[in-house]
């Protein structure tokens, strides 16, 4: 079980590499530029990871994307929720 932390936009090579690496019990946190995934509900990772992918709300707010995430019913978490995931997952990988 691994926590994947993606920092780059959905079309980036980092995102593609992450999608190839994500396994069944893994979770994904989208931070920094990766939260622009809120603009693309068709991004394959939304289907691939289903209930185990989250957008960092602070980074959504900083980019003016918080409303879009709510409208598209995308799962978000606060920084405290991010910490909770790191508590749950012993290993993490940052994709950048």
């Amino acid at each position: 079980m691994i926590l994947h932390i993606l920092t780059k936009a959905p079309g980036s090579s980092a995102a593609l590499q992450m999608q190839q690496a994500v396994a069944g019990q893994d979770s994904v946190v989208l931070i920094e530029e990766a939260v622009t995934a809120a603009l693309d509900p068709t991004w394959k990772a939304w289907q691939q990871c289903q209930s185990r992918i989250y957008l960092l709300s602070e980074d959504l707010l900083a980019r003016g994307l918080a409303t879009i995430a709510v409208d598209n019913q995308l799962p978000t978490l606060e920084m405290g929720g991010f910490i909770s995931l790191t508590e749950k997952y012993e290993k993490s990988v940052t994709w950048y």
């Binding site: 920092t7 931070i31 920094e32 530029e33 602070e58 980074d59 920084m79 405290g80 991010f82 910490i83 508590e87 950048y96």
Partner: peptide, 18 residues
């Protein structure tokens, strides 16, 4: 944005009692 993210994360870690 990495340093700012790391700094916010560090404060959140400490706030959680770690």
């Amino acid at each position: 944005p990495a340093p700012h993210s790391a700094l916010r994360f560090a404060h959140a870690v400490l706030d959680r009692g770690h």
